[in-house]
Design a protein around this nucleic acid. Structure first.
Length: 377
DNA sequence: AATTCGTGGAG
DNA sequence: TCTCCAAGAAT
């Protein structure tokens, strides 16, 4: 460390001092338990701190140790993740924890090679766990860090590019203090979260504002450079809220999605993508209901009675916008044997009462539909 | 390199 | 209401 500029040395000193005075009291900062740090880092991927806190506390309560999580059924793990989004994180975490139990004596690996081999652990998470839990001087470059660095050093590269992140990891390796890696990395992220915010950065109270190149040139609001994401693709979907008759009296029909892709393995109400999205649903309600009846028959070989509009609801994913209309149907009669339902479809089906909803894992949009239905009835 | 993975809060 | 986006990883 002989060619460090004064700008860099100043940055480390002021950042550490600021962090130790201003760090938030967060649940995963109560101790240095590597398992806890790991869980928090997975949950925090693309997810706000305030959203994560209750999930983290419940998760640690349900699965206090590596062994407890490794031994838990996947369904229980997903249930604890319900509503948090990006459900592959939960599956990968569960798989990785089993691997830690099997291959590392239930101890979270403390070196880059081993920890990076775990499912769901990428460059950021590997560095975060190694530095925060084990004080290893590894970079943990997330969106906060890239925003802070891009401003402080006036880096005008697109931060959505991998090459930009690796360049920043190189900068961190040059300046990360070997005796304070944990506080340094956390300090960078904390500064980005509390002071060097995306909009209206609070430069007047920033501990490193004096040498911040972006601020000195009045460019802090223009950084970081980030390519705009494509708008979500519109999908108009017709949802079937099907109430059972006979032995299914008082129940509704749900189905489980395939194990891969969007909302993998989650339960939902049956719903069908319209072929030609008509702007603002110009088609008639009758045509919509007939479409559902036809699609449902094709998928399950079972007939539905006439439908009735229940509610409209939208849900935005990162890349898809579901514009949904929910119709209520009653089970009419089976065209074929009930057991055949599962044979003609990539979905599994189940009749449940609304009171049993909490025994299955549903993505948020369907929980909202259930809540609305319960409120209305 | 570009796309696919959820959700909800802030302005 | 609309836009952005938050402690990213896998493919």
């Amino acid at each position: 460390m002989t060619n460090l500029t004064e700008q860099k040395l100043n940055f480390v000193k002021e950042l550490l001092s600021w962090f130790r005075e201003n760090k938030r009291d967060l649940p995963w900062r109560k101790n240095k338990n590597p398992y806890h740090i790991w869980i928090s880092e997975i949950m925090l991927q693309q997810t706000r701190v305030d959203t994560v806190i209750p999930y983290f506390e419940n998760f640690i309560d349900k699965f206090p140790t590596i062994e407890a999580l490794a031994n838990a059924p996947e369904e229980d793990v997903l249930k604890a993740w319900e509503g948090l989004g990006y459900y592959s994180r939960a599956r990968n975490l569960h798989s990785a924890v089993k691997e830690v139990k099997a291959s590392y004596g239930s101890v979270v690996p403390d070196n880059p090679k081993d920890i990076s081999s775990l499912k769901g652990v990428g460059p950021y998470t590997a560095g975060a766990v190694l530095s925060i839990a084990y004080d290893k001087p590894e970079p943990a470059v997330d969106g906060n860090v890239m925003r802070v660095l891009s401003r402080y050093f006036l880096i005008e590269e697109d931060i959505t590019k991998v090459s930009t992140r690796t360049a920043m990891e190189k900068i961190i390796r040059e300046i990360i203090p070997s005796d304070a890696a944990s506080d340094f990395n956390q300090g960078l992220m904390e500064l980005g979260a509390l002071v060097c915010t995306p909009k209206s950065p609070k430069c007047t109270t920033c501990p490193v504002m004096e040498h911040c190149d972006a601020r000195l040139q009045g460019k802090e609001e223009a950084l970081p450079i980030k390519k705009k994401a494509k708008p979500p693709k519109l999908e108009q979907r017709l949802v079937a809220f099907i109430e059972g008759t006979g032995t299914n009296e008082g129940k509704i029909l749900i189905r489980q999605r395939p194990g891969k892709g969007l909302l993998a393995g989650m339960w939902e109400l049956p719903h069908y993508l319209t072929e030609n999205p008509l702007k603002d649903w110009m088609g008639s309600e009758e045509l919509n209901e007939d479409f559902v009846i036809d699609q449902y028959a094709l998928e399950t070989g079972t007939e539905l009675g006439s439908g009735q509009w229940m509610l409209d609801i939208n849900h935005v994913f990162s890349h898809i916008l579901w514009d949904m209309k929910v119709y209520q149907f009653t089970e009419s009669h089976s065209l074929i044997e009930k057991e055949a339902i599962q044979l003609s479809s990539e979905y599994r089906y189940a009749w449940i009462s609304l009171d049993e909803v909490d025994e299955y894992v549903f993505p948020n949009v369907f929980l909202r539909i259930f809540k609305e239905v319960k409120r209305t009835k």
